[in-house]
Nucleic acid binder design. Structure first.
Lengths: 215, 215
DNA sequence: TTATTTCTAGACCTTACAGTCTATTTAAAT
DNA sequence: ATTTAAATAGACTGTAAGGTCTAGAAATAA
């Protein structure tokens, strides 16, 4: 009666909400650092727990397996990144196109902060598809779809404001953007340089400009 | 005297030229299949020699280590691919821009032949940088530089023939192309679909067209 | 033939890895 | 207090991986 939820209170120590579990969070953070740098296959559970300062039993208390952990990392990255996109794409102080530019700048700064040694988790794992647990594929695809949709919405606004022309569908442009952007992140990592990000962004915005001029 | 090369003939069984060594070639071919599909880290020497039907001692006769093998694969892929580019970019029956289109079509057909399960070796390993033997990085970078240079030469021709405008430098465009193309290959592998290749190619050629119109 | 070297062959070794097991400690309900 | 379950702790296990070793077959100069 006094309990808001209908579940009667069980005896024993109640489980922490996953978000509060410090050890779990530490594992996720450390795991993201490792996987964005090394990918899934060559990332070791032992290394990760060592760096996180969490014992093994604890890892397998929160995650059934490395695969389960990997899936959790994809989800964590996906929501972290969606939030980042929203922050940029819903910034009312900027024009829609400038919001996209803001994302590009922030992402670039983010890579710089780690000396261009860390890439995009979705890109890394996407490339590893052939070596990954099968369920990862769908998760990664829907991740890209999500980012693409948010980007398309931003581009649609730009289009309705006349910042870009009506020549191409926003969805098509957004698809183009994410295809190329992931390639740019890949090269930035390989070259340890922001140049590929800039090169791609410059080309992409040139494409958009031409769209505006040719309408 | 009768020997063309100055090296005096040694006793014992003479080493086969690497190109003739059937076992070595089989290993390279099988290795390329595995690494384009799974990358370096998760590809197993044992699996490869098993599929190649070559005993282990034989592998370590031709290659000092997995790393050495990987380096040989990069070189093999690099020269195989450069030849492919030359075949396209020096096709006199086509206009320069159509040569690039030919490359896109051939590469797309190549991926389709393997059900989009195999990607680009350089792209795969580039993404794995953080987990790779350090010397691989430079090798991969020079691989991309080589492809980019060949592509820039083709675009320069297109520019001198007026197929594209003088707005951007061919090197810049070629850099943009390879950044995005590798991203497209990544996504094509993840999606098991030619769509990303087409989407990127379409956008890229649109960009070039606008270059022509705006000159 | 014989000496010498390459190439083939695969059993074996070592290490690193994901995953298990058994305690112990901590926190809440009774 | 006592009971119950969560969370921490880390030694241990089994296997798969890269790499070594030794032996023999094949090839050619002497």
């Amino acid at each position: 009666m006094e309990n808001a939820q209908e579940t009667k209170p069980r005896r024993g120590r109640p489980p922490k909400a996953p978000d509060d579990a410090a050890a779990r969070q530490k594992l996720i953070r450390t795991g993201l650092a490792h996987l964005t740098e090394r990918g899934y296959s060559s990332a070791g559970v032992n290394e990760i727990i060592l760096e996180a300062g969490v014992p093994k039993g604890c890892f397998y208390h929160y995650f059934r397996s490395k695969e389960d952990f990997g899936a959790a990392l994809i989800d964590a990255y996906q929501s972290y990144f969606s939030a980042k996109l929203d922050r940029c794409f819903q910034d009312e102080t900027l024009s829609p196109l400038d919001r996209l530019r803001r994302f590009v700048d922030e992402a670039s700064a983010g890579m710089a902060k780690h000396d261009f040694k860390r890439g995009c988790l979705a890109g890394n794992l996407g490339q590893e598809t052939g070596a990954l647990p099968a369920p990862f594929r769908e998760r990664l695809q829907s991740t890209f779809k999500d980012w693409q949709d948010r980007t398309a919405a931003c581009l649609a606004q730009a289009q309705s404001l006349g910042e870009i022309g009506p020549k191409h569908a926003p969805q098509e442009l957004a698809a183009f953007f994410w295809i190329g952007w992931e390639g740019a992140v890949l090269r930035a990592k390989l070259d340890r340089s922001p140049a590929p990000l800039e090169t791609f962004a410059k080309g992409f915005f040139t494409l958009l400009e031409s769209e505006a001029e040719n309408q």
